[in-house]
Design a protein around this nucleic acid. Sequence first.
DNA 1: ACTTCGACTTAGTATTTGAGAC
DNA 2: GTCTCAAATACTAAGTCGAAGT
Length: 689
Amino acid sequence: MSGDHSHNEDQIDCGSRVNDSHKHKDKYRDKEHKHKDHKKDKEREKSKHGNGDYKDSSDKKHRDKEKEKMKHKDGSADKIKDKHKEKKIKLLDGKIKKEKENGFASPQHVKSEPEDDFYYSPKHEKSLKRERDDDNDSEFKPKKIKTENDKKAKKRKQEEDIKSKKMKNKKGEVADGKKKAKKEPEEKWKWWEEERYTDGVKWKFLEHKGPVFAPPYEPVPSNVKFYYDGKVMRLSPEAEEVATFFAKMLDHEYTTKDIFRKNFFKDWRKEMTAEEKSKITDLKKCNFGELSEYFKAQSEARKSKTKEDKLKLKEENERLLQEYGFCIMDNHRERIANFRIEPPGLFRGRGDHPKMGMLKRRIRPEDIIINCSKDSKYPQPPSGRKWKEVRHDNKVTWLVSWTENIQGSIKYIMLNPSSRIKGEKDWQKYETARRLKKCVDRIRNQYREDWKSKEMRIRQRAVALYFIDKLALRAGNEKEEGETADTVGCCSLRVEHIKLYPENDGQEYVVEFDFLGKDSIRYYNKVPVEKRVFKNLQLFMENKEPDDDVFDRLNTSILNKHLQELMDGLTAKVFRTYNASITLQQQLKQLTNVDENIPAKILSYNRANRAVAILCNHQRAPPKTFEKSMQNLQAKIDAKRDQLSDARRELKSAKADAKVRRDEKSKKYVSEDLVKMKFPPWLSVLTTC
DNA sequence: ACTTCGACTTAGTATTTGAGAC
DNA sequence: GTCTCAAATACTAAGTCGAAGT
């Protein structure tokens, strides 16, 4: 059993997902429908087992899991492995420390980078030099040429020699940077030719202007009315603002959903005055119609603004971008990805999210933590206001953070993908995937061996890893129930997500996957697996309830610890990167032909990308405008059809006319000119539509 | 050992932009 | 000039994963 050569080809043809998913989804997915089906299945399964013994199956699940875990708590082998691991890390640490001491990032004098043949752990960021693979895959050379963001960002280059971190007259520089940028040919900062920081330091100098806050709420004009129970009702600004959030979404289907409405109403009431609260007790009696119309009219007005107005708007945006959209990180002016604070609104999670409709509150300066250099010019809060905190943590990459109120998670303002800090990380990611390429056969052999292990947890780990590798599944962290949509990944698959067919459509050992993954995107795939995998799955699923975990002795942390032992820096997601990359590479090789013209090459390229999208189960809803443009096309087709039948009619009568007149000239006219005029060659295509 | 948290990447959707067709 | 449509960009939710906390 070698690490199967055919494996890579499997990546593009791993089961019947392509066809099936389209069959099932009718090309464009219908989330609502999907969710309902999913739930129904679950209910069905539950009721099957629901009588008698287990009234609360989730409770039972919990108990069982506990029991099982106890049974296997002996896992002593792991401890030994852990010790090994620690040693390794220490070793690397020592090395790193040494190197780190003289490590500079973005040195003023750019040294050329010797291509040494050693790999350093990207994970531990030991190396001063960027790791570079020494195998012969020359086609893999990192060729991303990133620019120091945005054309206008330029001119920073010249300041590279400025030693002092204090940008004396920063404003002036930035301003004339803008002017110059338009004329000067762009000079790119080749950060990838420079040395990197070590030991977790992300920057030495960071200066920025802080975030741009959402514009304050502007009450709607008094002639735009809200009605409750058929009567006009004037709302307090606070309540009105939240009402406008709902009104703006009225056209969306989710405003009809119970959870959305319930969550919204509950949060809305919190913003109401006591009087409003006592009056407004039923969302059904609320009429947001005028508000909704008002906002529609507003957006129309925005679209039909004059050229000058639009230009003015554009310029204002550009000004904001120049002022707040860039930071200075280690002598370079870098573009910020999201310098605007997320405006308040109603939360719309993806899929069946239990929190949809909740109020996403307005972020104030007092919620904001600023991160910048001690020796930089700190961003100033709006006058009379305060930041929550200003800190100087150069072990992180974010500039601004705040805690969001829906999940209580932290949000960040970070740099654009073209920045050095993001680019390096991205590069590192691909380098890790390239290292996996070198040992993937070994790892595959290993997990195939592990399918036979005496220990259940090792078998589970091996089967899960096989799915992650073969099907590009995500790791599948556990999620808190009731906090988010019910989605899963590999380690969190439940019995209800998998069906086993010893034989199906002439194939043996077929596994059918049907679950909602990230973003509640449905993963449907029917795939033949090796007999051992199949038997193992039967074993894992034996005597379990539909909502029990398939891999009850596995989680992402256990899996990743194991992967770490197999290869430094290896985690579950690296397999996705690796398999996506190798698939693209193989497909390009297979589909493209040097002699083809550009359009043919583009077609092949798109097809190669499609193969990757299928592997990774990337899906998108049809654009909103899809329906409309189809209608337009149909209208054109109809018009041509009419034209065609008119032309036929004319032809007929002209022929008849010619017969009567027996006029040579007329004959000629009928057979050539008229036909040419009325039946352009491409029209025949339409007639077959 | 398990849970929570923080930092960061990934990815779908909405909006804007800009080029070509009419 | 206006309209249409696709590509680019903006936005932000939802993942991953390691480390700290319990």
